[in-house]
Amino acid sequence: MANTTTAPHDDPALVAAFEARIAAGESIEPKDWMPERYRRQLTRMMSQHAHSEIVGMLPEGNWITRAPSLRRKLSLIAKVQDEAGHGLYIYCGTETLGVDRHELVNQLLDGKAKYSSIFNYPTLSFSDVGVIGWLVDGAAIVNQTILAKTSYGPYARAMIRICKEENFHKRQGFELCAHLAKGTPAQQAMVQESLNRFWWPSLMMFGPSDTDSPNSGELLRWKVKRKTNDELRQRFVNLTVPQVQALGLTLPDPDLTFDEATGNWTFGAIDWDEFQQVISGNGPCNHERLAARRKAHNDGEWVRAAATAYAAKRASASTEAA
């Protein structure tokens, strides 16, 4: 949808009216007046989220050709296709803020855009597919269930659609892990090893700690975010620990203990240096992921050219006929 509003000035009266609407729990729609900063913060968050969905196809896509059965292959193809769909829902939501998708895609391909740090880790065994569905999609559900109540209407609606589909992602992943956890000693060792590798990066998916999250205050005030990074992370840990126990697996955290007083699972210190390294481009697979995106984009150029030429030919044929 084209954004037809002229460049807004952040007139204090308009800001006050906007904040009153937010406080009343109203949803903000594309053509509504919004502070420039709100528009920019949402563009940043939504485009990073869309990029994450697109790059998120790569780690698992790696295993499609080597899935051990037709059933697992079908699930994996469907899941990876969903991730492409999720990217498109959110790019479409971002466009309602007056940005071109083309511009956002170029930022990703040029290496100027951020995306979720988790996708810069390699998928070394097939059980990683299970652990990603279980933990990475599980973490995404915790995050996105809350984002479905975000103040920006198009983002909230995209999240509702995505959450429904993520449930399939998580279930197929958990089923795969449960299957391996009941399997041969080699299969048990394989899924445990995957869990060990993905546990800490999954906790990092919720972003920096509340004590070091510069954008959080403003985003919470505008109800873009409804819970802090640490609150969501704790919720994820509380949900996941019993699932790990149910499978007879362990988590690589000697400090993990249940706190009777709060009902929370307290966990050990997260390696924030690693997180910073990975989001600033120095993770194990950052280079590989972007190279794969660029290759896919360039290899698809003939398809775009053919579609454009075909449409032009049909348009001129119908003009001549008229």
Partner: peptide
């Protein structure tokens, strides 16, 4: 419209 256009 170039081949790299995002289309309507």
């Amino acid at each position: 419209m170039t081949a790299d256009s995002q289309w309507p």
